[in-house]
Design a protein around this nucleic acid. Structure first.
Lengths: 174, 174
DNA sequence: GGAAGAAATTTCAAGCTTAAAATTGTTTTT
DNA sequence: AAAAACAATTTTAAGCTTGAAATTTCTTCC
């Protein structure tokens, strides 16, 4: 069933048992691509973390959580936040605790289902976030400024393809 | 190539209702690009972490550290490892402690300068790393398999441009 | 209606990460 | 040669992150 020749798979992928020791060259290109992607990502992330800390005494996780809430004026269920941020539920618990303490978000228990916690930005939290978001957009814009609009578009498209590839692979493995 | 004279933003982005400020210049395209890059990076990283844990009871930082050492048969100074991995020096200290305990790396103090610690893979560590590296390459290869060779090349080039842009921006700000 | 199961969240233990301060060792200055 | 400057690393304190186990609260099924 899996051995159909209808699909255009390049020959080197067909032999699933071949290990790197046999043919190290096969995987080199993808590895380099991944490392380059990771480098870009790490550089940007580090810089954003640094500036959030220095200019706003905040952190990236806090910013990301507030960014999720900004688009949900009526608040959001914890589990939904966890899924969207792609982090573990236990992680959200800690972040929410601190952001509640500092007055950035409010939390309420859903009356009809007391398991459910709903969090939302407070007016203070929203104001703070908007200040940060404006600067954040500037930082990213500066970091990406050396990229011509054409390249920006191409990169966007290629990353879309990559994302599809990753998700397809994850789905297959699951 | 795609049409290069007009890489316009789709109409919904032009709606000025949800802006942060009076929008001197629209940063949304860069933001979206950054988020997409981050998503790809996060997805791959999570999967690699998961498999390192499940299949080798190891972690990504350990793997990365050993990967640095693999290319340095005579060992490497701690500070150099720290720079290459783009993590803080204190971080390396902890990793080295654990990897030394588990017998994967050896550490020696340089005789001519006793501030300097040199670490290197032990034969055991090298063997372990090579096992992991082979699988790691396969995982990445699978995740990227949906990308045509052409796209792979284009992505590689575009990421190179992005990396230059980021580094130029960081240098300017410093 | 009560027990079993499922769902949302929290707790826990362990490890990662960072920046800043401290420590240890070397080099330069006076 | 003492003092000051510098360099490599470690320590510290705080926060992030995870997976697994536990808790609380519904829902379902007999």
């Amino acid at each position: 069933m899996t051995g159909e020749d209808k699909f255009d798979i390049s020959p080197e992928w067909l032999d699933g048992e071949t290990k790197v020791l046999e043919a190290p060259h096969d995987h080199r290109a993808e590895l380099r691509l991944w490392l380059r992607l990771l480098t870009c990502s790490t550089l940007v992330e580090s810089e954003v973390r640094r500036r959030l800390r220095e200019e706003f005494d905040s952190t990236l996780p806090r910013f990301d959580l507030m960014a999720q809430l900004e688009r949900a004026p009526d608040g959001m269920v914890l589990g939904e936040v966890s899924k969207r941020m792609m982090v573990s539920p236990g992680n959200i618990t800690v972040l929410v605790e601190r952001l509640t303490e500092s007055g950035h978000i409010s939390r309420t228990t859903l009356a009809t289902d007391r398991r459910v916690q709903i969090i939302a930005l407070t007016p203070f939290g929203r104001a703070e976030f908007e200040k940060m978001a404006a600067h954040h957009a500037d930082w990213i814009s500066d970091l990406f400024a050396g990229l011509a609009p054409k390249d920006s578009g191409v990169l966007m498209d290629e990353l879309a393809k990559l994302k599809r590839s990753i998700i397809a692979s994850l789905a297959k493995g699951a």
